[in-house]
């Protein structure tokens, strides 16, 4: 994949390089030479342009319009420190613009855009034996609360079956009274949703008082073990969570067979 990056500030370009270096991406950097940018884009096949909006000598939005005139299908991502939104763009630009990478941007946001351009869905790998951890494209997912992480673990343990609010409360918040438990459940759902959106993973269906899991882009050691019996199960499954005990007997049975 070939992308063009336009930013007048050297340090911004450098941090961009750091993020994309381990991907299969051919990156071409420009600072503020409009003629050079346009002639390069005209001569080469470019998948996407990442461009700053406010530069001393070039107006990023106008430049983007010229680029769209040259290449109809090029994807555009604006790198900006200001709260520019789709509403500030012309009709023509909106069609090609994927979104905005606000400075200072995180590796996650950048990866999301690169995934979008490559039309690649990020792979979530889930580790349940021993402790519980998730990795989106190899990067550890940080949950914003312990309970939202535990809720996701329960959803993984449910193995594709829908998880109702009542079930979730029975597992995670049985010590609280009903009203408080519902509040805690909804809070965990809110935070889980936020975490998954941040890493660009869209695998959970958030219904009214029910959660569903789309297993398509998730690899999970527990599921593999149930199917094939191969893996690193050593008698411990989601060991931080009390409710995991009920899942141990079937796992032990598989271990005993092999």
């Amino acid at each position: 994949m070939k992308i063009v990056v336009i930013d007048d500030e050297l340090y911004a370009l450098q941090s961009f390089l750091g993020e994309v270096v381990d991907r299969d991406v051919e990156c071409r950097y420009f600072r503020d030479d409009e003629q050079a940018i346009l002639s390069y884009i005209a001569k080469n096949s470019v998948d996407a342009v990442f461009s700053d909006v406010n530069m001393p000598t070039i107006d990023g939005l106008k430049l983007a319009e010229k680029i769209v005139d040259l290449k109809k299908d090029v994807a555009i991502v604006f790198i900006t420190g200001m709260p520019v939104t789709m509403a500030d763009l012309s009709e023509k630009l909106r069609r090609n613009t994927l979104g905005f990478l606000y400075k200072p941007y995180s590796a996650n946001r950048l990866s999301e855009f690169l995934n979008l351009i490559q039309k690649r869905v990020p792979l979530l790998s889930v580790r349940t034996f021993d402790g519980f951890d998730c990795f989106a494209d190899g990067k550890l997912v940080t949950f914003t609360s312990a309970k939202s992480k535990e809720l996701f673990a329960l959803l993984i343990a449910y193995n594709g079956n829908s998880l109702t609010m009542t079930d979730a409360i029975a597992h995670l918040w049985q010590d609280n009274d009903v009203e408080k438990a519902k509040i805690l459940y909804r809070n965990a759902v809110f935070r889980l949703r936020k975490t998954l959106t941040d890493v660009g993973v869209d695998c959970v269906g958030f219904g009214r008082a029910v959660l569903t899991l789309d297993k398509t882009n998730i690899s999970c050691d527990y599921w593999d073990y149930l199917k094939t019996g191969g893996g690193a199960y050593r008698g411990e499954f989601l060991k931080n969570y009390d409710w995991s005990i009920e899942y141990l007997p079937p796992l032990d049975a598989i271990a005993a067979k092999s």
Binding site: K182, I183, L184, R186, N187, F190, R191, R208
Partner: peptide, 8 residues
Amino acid sequence: IEVLFDTD
């Protein structure tokens, strides 16, 4: 601080 989002 525990902040709970009870925002259905």
